[in-house]
């Protein structure tokens, strides 16, 4: 490879993170697609009351909060995987 940076060592957890990332991305894409589908298929459904809010706002806020939750889970799993799978001398420099 022409441009491989050398600031960090080999990451033994990369394949696990890649797999997790793919599935979480797919999961989010499905929930997002569901939101778009309801918008075009039944805008009336979006207007149904959910407590003081409605489906549109609960789903919309839900998508934003869901992104935050998935991001947090992904980071926790990835950080633990890096700690477990990388040997101490190979472990990438922790900056947290």
């Amino acid at each position: 490879m022409l441009h491989t940076s050398t600031d960090w060592k080999k990451d033994g957890a990369s394949s696990l993170k890649e797999l997790l990332g793919k599935w979480l991305c797919l999961l989010y894409a499905l929930v997002y697609a569901g939101f778009i589908f309801i918008n075009v298929a039944s805008p009336q459904f979006m207007g149904i009351d959910v407590g003081s809010l409605n489906v549109a706002i609960v789903y919309g806020f839900g998508l934003i909060l869901f992104a935050m939750v998935l991001a947090f889970i992904y980071n926790q799993v990835s950080t633990h995987a890096e700690e477990l799978l990388n040997q101490p001398e190979d472990r990438e420099e922790k900056t947290a």
């Binding site: 997002y32 998508l63 934003i64 998935l70 992904y74």
Partner: peptide, 17 residues
Amino acid sequence: FLYSIGYLAGWIVALFV
């Protein structure tokens, strides 16, 4: 607000992929 939702959702691709 749909723009807000779409703009934020894009970050999921940025993070996971």
